[in-house]
Amino acid sequence: MKKIYLRIGIAIISILLLLAIVSIFWTPYSPTKMSGSLKNAAPSLEHICGCDNFGRDVFSRIMSGIGITFLIAFCTVFIGAFVGCVIGLLTGFYGGIIDEIIMRINDLLLSFPSVLLALVIISVLGKGKYKIIIALGILFIPSFARMIRAETIRIKKLGFIESARAMGIPTWKIIFKHVFPNVIPKLVTNITIGFNNAVIAEASMSYLGLGVQPPDQSLGRMISEAQSYLFVAPWIAVMPGIVIIIMIVGFSLIGESFEE
């Protein structure tokens, strides 16, 4: 069953990634081209997802938006996972006073509501896609650090680690060649969860007007711009919303396949 989940998840994400890559070179219509005659036009054979309040093709905007949403999610998770891994591996393996200090800071950050903390960081850094990447990346570090630390503490007590120590293998080799490979399954699961959280967080921040700014478009930005037209042209918000749900399902299926 897990193999089926993995294949379905990879298929979903691959299709979305393909759309994002294709959008760099081609879209059915220009995502920024406006047309007064197509304002709030319903889905049709020519415009399969309809047009927005400016007469722009919604499907073309979704293709471009997927790319920006993926970029934000990937960079956010990379920052959180990379920094969190380094902190978790070192504090979990060495322990001591440094571990206590870092984990108390970690707990302090986790005690704040994530959206509130993101708003505080964005208010300092400013709006825009690169600012939201930094803000969400910082936000994701504590959860990755805690998870990796817990796994490191568990693994370092196992017999093969004790044997490696007894053989005089350098500590850095033990950490990165013996401990790290054994935390990868948990890491992959948390990365997929992180992608889901990043997609939702980006959509939330953009919906509030604090994330991606025009002329860039993300899926969250599209929903934000469509909120005034929910009863006049619901497809403007529903179509990117469906894509966000599909994206989350894809990452969830991949993560499910790695859970023990």
Score class of each variant (00 low, 15 high):
4 I>D: 05
9 G>Q: 01
10 I>C: 10
12 I>L: 09
14 S>R: 00
15 I>C: 14
17 L>H: 07
20 A>P: 14
24 I>V: 15
27 T>E: 04
28 P>N: 08
29 Y>W: 08
35 S>W: 05
41 A>N: 11
42 A>P: 03
42 A>G: 07
44 S>V: 03
44 S>K: 08
50 G>P: 03
50 G>A: 03
52 D>W: 01
54 F>R: 07
55 G>L: 08
56 R>W: 05
59 F>N: 00
60 S>F: 08
62 I>V: 04
67 G>S: 15
68 I>V: 11
76 T>G: 15
80 G>T: 03
80 G>I: 07
85 C>P: 07
93 F>W: 09
93 F>K: 06
93 F>M: 07
96 G>M: 02
98 I>C: 14
101 I>K: 02
102 I>F: 15
104 R>I: 01
110 L>I: 09
112 F>G: 08
113 P>H: 11
117 L>S: 06
118 A>K: 06
120 V>Y: 14
124 V>W: 09
136 L>C: 08
136 L>M: 10
137 G>R: 00
139 L>N: 02
140 F>T: 01
142 P>N: 05
144 F>H: 08
144 F>T: 03
146 R>H: 10
148 I>D: 14
150 A>R: 00
153 I>R: 14
157 K>N: 15
160 F>Y: 13
162 E>T: 02
163 S>L: 14
169 I>D: 12
169 I>S: 12
170 P>Q: 04
172 W>V: 14
175 I>M: 14
179 V>Q: 06
180 F>Q: 02
181 P>R: 08
182 N>F: 01
182 N>I: 05
187 L>F: 14
188 V>E: 07
189 T>R: 12
190 N>W: 08
192 T>L: 01
193 I>W: 13
196 N>Q: 14
199 V>P: 05
204 S>L: 10
206 S>W: 09
211 G>W: 07
214 P>C: 04
217 Q>K: 12
218 S>Q: 05
218 S>K: 02
220 G>P: 06
221 R>M: 14
223 I>C: 04
223 I>G: 08
226 A>M: 05
228 S>T: 05
230 L>V: 01
231 F>I: 02
238 V>M: 05
247 M>Y: 07
248 I>H: 01
254 I>R: 09
254 I>N: 13
257 S>A: 15
